[in-house]
Protein backbone atom coordinates (compact mmCIF):
# COMPACT_ATOMS: atom_id res chain seq x y z
CA UNK A 1 0.00 0.00 0.00
CA UNK A 2 1.29 3.46 -0.83
CA UNK A 3 1.79 6.03 1.90
CA UNK A 4 0.76 9.30 0.32
CA UNK A 5 2.18 12.68 1.14
CA UNK A 6 2.81 16.08 -0.43
CA UNK A 7 6.06 18.03 -0.64
CA UNK A 8 5.69 21.81 -0.84
CA UNK A 9 8.34 24.12 -2.26
CA UNK A 10 7.31 27.35 -0.59
CA UNK A 11 10.02 29.29 -2.45
CA UNK A 12 7.92 28.85 -5.62
CA UNK A 13 4.58 29.93 -4.11
CA UNK A 14 3.24 33.24 -5.42
CA UNK A 15 0.22 33.33 -3.09
CA UNK A 16 -2.44 33.17 -5.83
CA UNK A 17 -4.84 30.93 -3.84
CA UNK A 18 -5.57 28.76 -6.89
CA UNK A 19 -5.07 25.66 -4.71
CA UNK A 20 -7.76 26.87 -2.32
CA UNK A 21 -10.28 27.49 -5.08
CA UNK A 22 -9.46 24.20 -6.80
CA UNK A 23 -9.95 22.39 -3.48
CA UNK A 24 -13.29 24.09 -2.86
CA UNK A 25 -14.36 23.14 -6.37
CA UNK A 26 -13.17 19.53 -6.14
CA UNK A 27 -14.74 18.93 -2.73
CA UNK A 28 -17.91 20.95 -3.45
CA UNK A 29 -17.30 23.28 -0.50
CA UNK A 30 -19.22 26.46 0.23
CA UNK A 31 -17.50 29.77 -0.39
CA UNK A 32 -16.76 30.23 3.33
CA UNK A 33 -15.25 26.77 3.79
CA UNK A 34 -11.75 25.77 2.90
CA UNK A 35 -9.39 22.88 3.55
CA UNK A 36 -6.19 24.75 2.73
CA UNK A 37 -4.78 28.17 3.41
CA UNK A 38 -1.88 30.36 2.35
CA UNK A 39 -0.20 32.24 5.17
CA UNK A 40 2.52 34.78 4.59
CA UNK A 41 5.59 35.57 6.61
CA UNK A 42 7.77 38.69 6.36
CA UNK A 43 11.39 38.06 5.48
CA UNK A 44 14.18 40.58 6.01
CA UNK A 45 13.85 44.35 6.21
CA UNK A 46 13.60 47.15 3.69
CA UNK A 47 15.34 47.42 1.21
CA UNK A 48 15.97 43.65 1.11
CA UNK A 49 12.45 42.75 2.10
CA UNK A 50 10.49 39.74 0.92
CA UNK A 51 7.31 37.88 1.69
CA UNK A 52 7.27 34.12 2.01
CA UNK A 53 4.01 32.36 1.17
CA UNK A 54 3.38 29.08 2.98
CA UNK A 55 0.53 26.87 1.71
CA UNK A 56 -1.06 25.01 4.62
CA UNK A 57 -3.34 21.98 4.80
CA UNK A 58 -3.95 18.92 6.96
CA UNK A 59 -0.62 17.20 7.61
CA UNK A 60 -2.14 13.70 7.66
CA UNK A 61 -0.02 12.92 10.72
CA UNK A 62 1.03 9.32 11.32
CA UNK A 63 0.49 9.96 15.04
CA UNK A 64 -2.64 12.04 14.62
CA UNK A 65 -3.81 13.80 17.83
CA UNK A 66 -7.24 14.42 16.24
CA UNK A 67 -7.76 10.69 15.78
CA UNK A 68 -6.65 9.92 19.33
CA UNK A 69 -9.15 12.32 20.94
CA UNK A 70 -12.17 11.56 18.68
CA UNK A 71 -14.75 9.99 21.03
CA UNK A 72 -16.78 8.31 18.27
CA UNK A 73 -13.88 7.04 16.19
CA UNK A 74 -15.22 9.12 13.27
CA UNK A 75 -11.67 10.27 12.52
CA UNK A 76 -9.68 7.39 11.09
CA UNK A 77 -6.60 6.76 8.98
CA UNK A 78 -7.24 5.10 5.63
CA UNK A 79 -5.04 2.28 4.36
CA UNK A 80 -3.17 4.84 2.24
CA UNK A 81 -2.29 6.80 5.40
CA UNK A 82 -4.85 9.55 4.76
CA UNK A 83 -6.62 10.95 7.86
CA UNK A 84 -10.36 11.11 7.10
CA UNK A 85 -13.62 11.90 8.92
CA UNK A 86 -16.62 9.58 8.68
CA UNK A 87 -19.53 12.03 8.22
CA UNK A 88 -22.03 9.46 9.48
CA UNK A 89 -20.55 9.10 12.99
CA UNK A 90 -19.08 12.56 13.70
CA UNK A 91 -21.11 14.32 16.44
CA UNK A 92 -19.49 17.74 16.03
CA UNK A 93 -17.92 17.92 19.52
CA UNK A 94 -14.93 19.82 18.07
CA UNK A 95 -12.45 18.05 20.38
CA UNK A 96 -10.32 17.19 17.31
CA UNK A 97 -10.20 20.89 16.35
CA UNK A 98 -8.79 21.69 19.79
CA UNK A 99 -6.36 18.76 19.62
CA UNK A 100 -4.87 19.60 16.21
CA UNK A 101 -1.69 21.62 16.90
CA UNK A 102 -1.76 22.90 13.30
CA UNK A 103 -5.43 24.00 13.55
CA UNK A 104 -6.21 22.53 10.12
CA UNK A 105 -9.77 21.37 10.79
CA UNK A 106 -12.99 23.28 10.24
CA UNK A 107 -16.56 22.81 11.45
CA UNK A 108 -19.25 22.58 8.77
CA UNK A 109 -22.23 24.17 10.54
CA UNK A 110 -24.58 23.13 7.74
CA UNK A 111 -24.00 19.42 8.29
CA UNK A 112 -22.86 19.77 11.92
CA UNK A 113 -19.67 17.80 11.40
CA UNK A 114 -15.95 18.52 11.38
CA UNK A 115 -14.29 18.55 7.97
CA UNK A 116 -10.72 18.62 6.70
CA UNK A 117 -8.41 18.01 3.74
CA UNK A 118 -9.11 14.52 2.31
CA UNK A 119 -6.05 14.48 0.04
CA UNK A 120 -8.68 14.05 -2.72
CA UNK A 121 -8.55 10.34 -1.91
CA UNK A 122 -11.49 9.43 -4.20
CA UNK A 123 -9.67 11.06 -7.10
CA UNK A 124 -6.34 9.47 -6.12
CA UNK A 125 -7.88 5.98 -5.94
CA UNK A 126 -9.03 6.44 -9.54
CA UNK A 127 -5.45 7.22 -10.52
CA UNK A 128 -5.66 11.01 -10.25
CA UNK A 129 -3.74 13.63 -8.30
CA UNK A 130 -5.14 15.99 -5.62
CA UNK A 131 -6.72 19.17 -7.06
CA UNK A 132 -4.39 21.53 -5.18
CA UNK A 133 -1.38 19.78 -6.78
CA UNK A 134 -2.59 19.76 -10.40
CA UNK A 135 -3.96 23.30 -10.37
CA UNK A 136 -0.86 25.08 -9.06
CA UNK A 137 0.53 27.38 -11.78
CA UNK A 138 4.05 27.34 -10.33
CA UNK A 139 4.02 23.63 -9.38
CA UNK A 140 4.64 24.22 -5.70
CA UNK A 141 3.25 20.87 -4.63
CA UNK A 142 4.58 17.38 -5.43
CA UNK A 143 2.23 14.50 -4.63
CA UNK A 144 3.33 10.90 -4.34
CA UNK A 145 4.20 7.79 -2.39
CA UNK A 146 6.60 8.45 0.48
CA UNK A 147 7.48 4.74 0.70
CA UNK A 148 8.68 4.58 -2.92
CA UNK A 149 12.30 5.82 -2.98
CA UNK A 150 12.06 6.52 -6.73
CA UNK A 151 8.92 8.68 -6.57
CA UNK A 152 9.26 12.37 -7.38
CA UNK A 153 8.30 13.31 -3.82
CA UNK A 154 10.88 11.01 -2.20
CA UNK A 155 13.62 12.31 -4.48
CA UNK A 156 12.59 15.92 -3.81
CA UNK A 157 12.70 15.37 -0.03
CA UNK A 158 16.07 13.59 -0.28
CA UNK A 159 17.58 16.33 -2.49
CA UNK A 160 16.27 19.39 -0.66
CA UNK A 161 16.08 18.11 2.90
CA UNK A 162 12.45 19.22 3.13
CA UNK A 163 11.04 19.01 6.64
CA UNK A 164 7.51 18.91 8.06
CA UNK A 165 6.29 21.99 9.97
CA UNK A 166 7.23 21.77 13.66
CA UNK A 167 8.47 18.15 13.63
CA UNK A 168 9.22 18.63 17.34
CA UNK A 169 5.48 18.38 18.07
CA UNK A 170 5.87 14.65 17.49
CA UNK A 171 2.83 14.08 15.29
CA UNK A 172 4.91 12.81 12.30
CA UNK A 173 3.28 14.85 9.49
CA UNK A 174 3.25 13.69 5.84
CA UNK A 175 3.37 17.19 4.32
CA UNK A 176 6.99 18.32 3.78
CA UNK A 177 8.21 21.86 3.22
CA UNK A 178 11.21 23.28 1.44
CA UNK A 179 11.55 26.75 2.98
CA UNK A 180 13.75 29.59 1.85
Amino acid sequence: MPRYGIAIDSTKCIGCHSCRVACQNQNELHFDETFNWIKSKDRGQYPSYGKEFIPLQCNHCENAPCQRVCPTGATYTSKEGVVLVNPKTCVGCKYCMEACPYKMRIIDHRRGIVEKCRLCIELVREGGTPACVTTCPTQVRIFGDLDDPNSAISRFIAQTGAQPLRPDLGTVPKIFYKRS
Binding site: V69, P71, T72, T89, V91, C93, G112
Partner: peptide, 23 residues
Protein backbone atom coordinates in the same frame (compact mmCIF):
# COMPACT_ATOMS: atom_id res chain seq x y z
CA UNK B 1 -22.43 22.42 21.93
CA UNK B 2 -22.59 19.30 19.75
CA UNK B 3 -23.72 19.91 16.22
CA UNK B 4 -24.65 16.73 14.29
CA UNK B 5 -24.90 14.92 17.64
CA UNK B 6 -27.47 17.49 18.80
CA UNK B 7 -29.67 17.42 15.71
CA UNK B 8 -29.39 13.64 15.37
CA UNK B 9 -29.25 12.57 19.05
CA UNK B 10 -28.81 8.86 18.27
CA UNK B 11 -25.29 9.72 17.16
CA UNK B 12 -24.46 10.32 20.84
CA UNK B 13 -24.36 6.55 21.35
CA UNK B 14 -21.18 6.51 19.25
CA UNK B 15 -19.52 8.69 21.87
CA UNK B 16 -18.16 5.82 23.96
CA UNK B 17 -16.51 4.38 20.87
CA UNK B 18 -12.88 5.35 21.55
CA UNK B 19 -11.45 4.69 25.00
CA UNK B 20 -8.32 6.65 24.08
CA UNK B 21 -10.54 9.78 24.05
CA UNK B 22 -11.23 11.60 27.31
CA UNK B 23 -14.72 12.46 26.03
Amino acid sequence: DLEAGFWQPWRQFYMIGNLRSMI
